[in-house]
Each structure stands twice: as structure tokens, then as C-alpha cells.
């Protein structure tokens, strides 16, 4: 699945990808295309908050090359969440933790 948010400003890319993965089961790989400079840190933080895993980020996407292609895998919190916990209360650390102050510690790309 691919979500195109090229040319939109924060927080629209995150809202679009959140809407797209809303009803997906865990383990699905989703692609987000975005050119807003805030998307890099924001998609990583959103994945952490929602239990998804950010797999990788490839720059140089789009007509002017200003976009980035983010790949993420939906997490287990996506299928109805924890028992009785609504979307607003999902404060769980994702497995793919970031080394703070650096690029995300991506998993090896699995095709």
C-alpha cells in the first residue's frame, strides 16, 4: 500500500498514513511518500506511539527529488489495540527504538 503526501505540510502526511493503516492487520508494509521536512522525525515518533516499525527511508523521491519514501510495518497495536484501550491511550514503546540524536536504527531491508 502506498500513501502519497508529497507537497503537503505537517501534520498532513502523518494523518494520511494514520488513516491508511487504521484498519490494517499487523505485519503489513505501507509506503509513505512525503516531502515535508518534519515527516522524518514525525513518522518515527508516530510509529513509536502507535507500535508500528519504521523500516527505512529513501530520499530523492518525486518530480524534484525533494521527497522521501518511508516504509513502515504495521504493529500489533493496530488491530483494536490493547484490551479496552482506545487509540488515544496507546503509549507503548515500539520495538524499533531510535538511537536518539541519530538517524533511526533501521532494520535490514527485507524484500
Amino acid at each position: 500500500m502506498e500513501v502519497d503526501a508529497l507537497g503537503t505540510r505537517c501534520p498532513v502526511p502523518i494523518i494520511r498514513v494514520a488513516r491508511a493503516v487504521r484498519d490494517l492487520p499487523p505485519g503489513i508494509v505501507v509506503v509513505l511518500l512525503a516531502s515535508d521536512p518534519a515527516t522524518g522525525p514525525d513518522v518515527a515518533a508516530w510509529c513509536r506511539m502507535r507500535g508500528h516499525t519504521l523500516l527505512d527511508a529513501d530520499p530523492g523521491v518525486g518530480e524534484d527529488g525533494a521527497g522521501t519514501r518511508y516504509r513502515l510495518r504495521t504493529g500489533c497495536l493496530n488491530e483494536g489495540g490493547l484490551d479496552g484501550v482506545g487509540p488515544g491511550q496507546r503509549h507503548v514503546e515500539a520495538e524499533g527504538k531510535l538511537r536518539r540524536g541519530q538517524e533511526p536504527d533501521y532494520e535490514p531491508t527485507a524484500n
Partner: peptide, 24 residues
């Protein structure tokens, strides 16, 4: 510290380094 506010087009490097949301 969000981008898209009047003062800057870049998100806060502090929030990004801490792994926090830069929007909102």
C-alpha cells in the same frame, strides 16, 4: 518548535534529536 509556524520552515532540531513529534 513545529515547522510551518511563522518563524521557521524547519522543525525543531531538539525535538527531532529526542525522537519526539515535531508537529503540534
Amino acid at each position: 518548535g513545529s515547522a510551518c509556524t511563522a518563524s521557521t520552515l524547519e522543525p525543531s532540531h531538539v525535538l527531532a534529536a529526542m525522537g519526539l513529534l515535531t508537529h503540534g
